[in-house]
Design a binder for these strands. Structure first.
Lengths: 205, 205
DNA sequence: ATAAATTGTCTGACTGTTCAGTCATTATTA
DNA sequence: TAATAATGACTGAACAGTCAGACAATTTAT
């Protein structure tokens, strides 16, 4: 987060910062990057446009900061769960559950995620993009490590662990997309067992 | 002589249309909808901006037409393959192979697909959007029907066929995304057997 | 056969609007 | 009172879409 004068931040200021980030998340999620204007976000946050530029350098900076904020929240949940004792499978299953629960609670957010990397290329600041890409790949790395361990323990076929991680993410993601598109939404978390069943049976030795 | 000249004129027209569609596909795929300007497309197609508006009503119209063109090509390949005789599994496997091959040959194109529905919402003409959504869902329906048959034949566990279709699409799609992001790309088609193995084992009774 | 008129295609300068980012002014806080 | 925070009118660039006219292919008239 590129907050100017970070060290001098006060409570009033932090509130405004959060207001802006929440408004940005909401609107970017609803409409995507380009159709969302800074004026929209300012209005939603009940602040003047100029105030936003006190906290963020540009629209892109705000966009990435909003994504980063949520991604941090998801990652810390995942990382915490992975530290818990248990077998590789138990951890993989926990991860699936946490991911689906998080998406169910933040259904707008994931829409940003899926498009950001391909949508903004070219134009965007390299540094900004890398901040987010790094966190995205950390998630895949965690899953890859878990799957590799399951392979080493002989519970999973000796396939490419990274590709299996990609496949698992793909399953979880596609079900989320499907769930969001439904008019009458059931519980997304309820699909955790389906994912676990299909994936584990699909890769087990 | 008369006929010859007339043909020359008509062929010229069709060429321009194709030129525009190809340029649009290329640039929309590379940069996405908003950062691509009609001037860019005109330049790429070596035509004047006004000419594009002879063939398309708006930027959105052009965007959807470019998508539709490619989607038709993919769908007709899939539909043809599904008509071939064979078991439900053979057809599902054929579909996976065709899909991956198509993406390998049109790696830019699929990027548009994944984002279009979420990117443009709100603003876009309903009718334009529906043209594409209808075709997208036709693909899922084909897969769903195949999977349902495999369930009826007792080869697949009695789970929700549509969700399984969504899962299969998710696997194929995520591997495509992963493949595109690789610097050193191997063969995407080569992953067809991985998908088939994991999916079939994952859902079999 | 040649010129003139007609038709259909293409062009790119122009217009109106939208919007990211600025900054002089005002409000708040210490 | 001085420092800091917030405001919103303003600016300049970008861009979708238009349109008056250029140009080439055909047809008609002489």
């Amino acid at each position: 987060m590129k907050v100017k004068e970070m060290n001098k931040r006060k409570i009033g200021q932090r509130d405004h910062l959060t207001q802006v980030l929440q408004a940005a998340e909401k609107l970017f999620a609803k409409r995507g990057f380009y159709p969302t204007t800074i004026d929209d976000i300012a209005k939603e946050a009940k602040l003047a446009k100029g105030t936003i530029y006190l906290y963020f350098d540009s629209k892109e900076d705000l966009f990435f900061s909003a994504i980063e904020r949520k991604l941090d929240a998801l990652l810390s949940k995942i990382e915490k769960a992975v530290k818990e004792p248990g077998s590789a499978w138990q951890r993989i299953n926990a991860t699936i559950g946490i991911h689906l629960k998080f998406m169910e609670e933040n259904k707008d957010f994931f829409k940003i995620m899926q498009s950001f990397s391909e949508q903004l290329r070219e134009k965007l600041e390299k540094e900004l993009k890398e901040r987010v890409v790094e966190k995205q790949s950390r998630y895949i790395k965690i899953l890859t490590r878990l799957i590799q361990r399951a392979i080493n323990e002989g519970e999973v076929k000796p396939l490419n662990a990274r590709k299996l991680a990609v496949i698992l993410m793909g399953i979880v993601h596609s079900l989320t997309v499907y769930w969001v598109s439904q008019k009458e939404r059931g519980s997304l978390c309820g699909d955790a067992s389906l994912v676990q069943e299909v994936f584990s049976q699909g890769v087990e030795r």
